[in-house]
Design a binder for these strands. Structure first.
Lengths: 195, 195
DNA sequence: TTCCAGATGTGATGTAGATCACGTGATGGC
DNA sequence: GCCATCACGTGATCTACATCACATCTGGAA
């Protein structure tokens, strides 16, 4: 993807929420940095500082946590026009406690914490945009939590696929299982006829 | 609590995050409405419209969901200086899908959706404050989700009490169980010596 | 072409927590 | 002061899902 397309994607994304003049948009775009990654590459690493958040242009990322028994839990998949990072570490300026890596080859725009705060301070509508975006994330997270407490694996699996059908083709089942918080064996058994 | 104290509590709370002149604070405070509730009273009701979010001055609220089998799941407790509402319904202008009620007698300041948006638009630092607050909520929600997937009930119970020791004395165990997503019986058995 | 690692299926067995059932003690409304 | 309701404990049993073990298939690297 060339810079023009990347710019258009971000602009369309932001325009759905707030209005910016072309000059304002050019200005904020100048704070983003284009980056390309290969399948399997790590973008955010546990234990290292986190400086940026990432706007996905193409491909698919995952943010995940590995516990002491080396079991992986996926917090979020990130498809084009989604944002991702270790927000806990980013906002509180701690080292990362989660990882972000690439499920497929991917292109992102990265925005540093300082630059986000700077453009939020400088342009009120940008501040509004990021408030809106975090609201969305918060509400989605609450819904997922509720579904976790309320629904069994099969329901949650179907809910996920209904919401993001494209994941079915891109993401291997063991990662879907790690998102649902279930073992890959159990996920695999969901649709086998009961003996 | 009188208006002066309520005002001071909100002001202190906001001042930790951003700076407002006295005039600005007086102005935004004029958009809040003081309300008093008795233990057990409902503030937000499933199926009804939601217009406001609530800043807790005193007492303890809970926001919760009741599923088809009448099982209750608690999304959040709200103690003094916490905010609560059905944010999903509030932002998207749908009817409430969750309830908010009072675990103890409580006093709140309520702020309508339109007024929040209005004061956010009018005062940049207020927009900043609400972005910051939602960030906090988002990060906390992600952490809880992770703990849910990663830790067993006992660990989550101790984590909750370590974070909010005051809940132990105020909130009955069946509600703690509903927050942890576990049956009250299991919670009750956590500390009985194994037979 | 060969080979190896990753993705997936499936059987056998273990276990955390759910559910049902019942009992006791506290408390608050009338 | 009575009684209904709620909070809480605890035994017996059930079940969804985890874990371990092993097999098959596939695609990509050497």
């Amino acid at each position: 993807m060339n810079t023009t397309d990347a710019k258009a994607l971000l602009k369309t994304h932001i325009s759905k929420v707030t209005t910016l003049t072309d000059e304002q948009f050019d200005y904020i775009f100048s704070h983003f940095q284009y980056q390309q990654y290969k399948k399997g590459q790590t973008i955010v690493t546990e234990g290292r500082p986190v400086n940026c958040e990432y706007f996905v242009l193409s491909g698919c990322l995952k943010s995940f946590f590995i516990n002491d028994e080396l079991k992986m839990f996926i917090l979020q998949f990130a498809m084009p026009t989604w944002w991702t990072s270790d927000y806990n570490a980013l906002y509180s300026q701690h080292k990362a406690t989660i990882n972000v890596d690439c499920i497929t080859d991917a292109e992102v725009l990265c925005l540093s914490n300082e630059d986000r705060e700077k453009i939020c301070r400088e342009i009120h509508n940008v501040e509004y945009f990021f408030r809106w975006r975090t609201n969305k994330g918060y509400v989605a997270s609450q819904k997922r939590l509720l579904s976790f407490m309320n629904n069994n694996v099969k329901y949650r699996y179907e809910e996920l696929l209904a919401l993001y059908p494209e994941l079915y083709n891109i993401v291997p089942k063991n990662l879907i299982a790690a998102y649902l918080g279930v073992s890959r064996e159990t996920l695999s058994r969901l649709y086998t006829p009961e003996k």
